[in-house]
């Protein structure tokens, strides 16, 4: 069995990839995927600790996060389709009318 630090390092790497993805991508789909990556990095840490400490709390949280992520993906993708219908683009930088 791998030690806790190994899981944390993997999760950290995944989270940083996800964060960088959110910050640099212009494509909304990829942005969503990056967010999923960050959520799953968090899930990985939860599961690792849950196993190590022999507590089921971490599992419960992970299921909650997965449910929320699924719901978010459904709503988010629906919004992306609507945005595309209206503006014929999914470049996030084009949706900037909410400003001063």
């Amino acid at each position: 069995m791998l030690s806790i630090p190994a899981y944390i390092i993997v999760a950290l790497v995944l989270f940083c990839i996800g964060t960088i993805g959110v910050l640099i991508t212009r494509n909304i789909i990829i942005l969503f995927m990056s967010i999923e990556l960050m959520l799953n990095a968090a899930n990985l840490v939860l599961i690792a600790f849950s196993r190590a400490l022999n507590l089921m709390d971490g599992h419960a949280f992970v299921f909650l996060v997965l449910t929320v992520a699924a719901a978010e993906a459904a709503v988010g993708l629906a919004m992306v389709i609507t945005l595309y219908r209206n503006r014929e683009t999914i470049n996030i930088d084009r949706f900037n009318i909410l400003k001063w």
Binding site: V22, L23, D93, K99, W100
Partner: peptide, 17 residues
């Protein structure tokens, strides 16, 4: 101050991070 409200999601996210 209001010029900081660019309307660009990525810059908001950067500040957030």
């Amino acid at each position: 101050l209001r010029t900081s409200q660019t309307g660009r999601v990525r810059s908001y996210a950067t500040v957030f991070v």
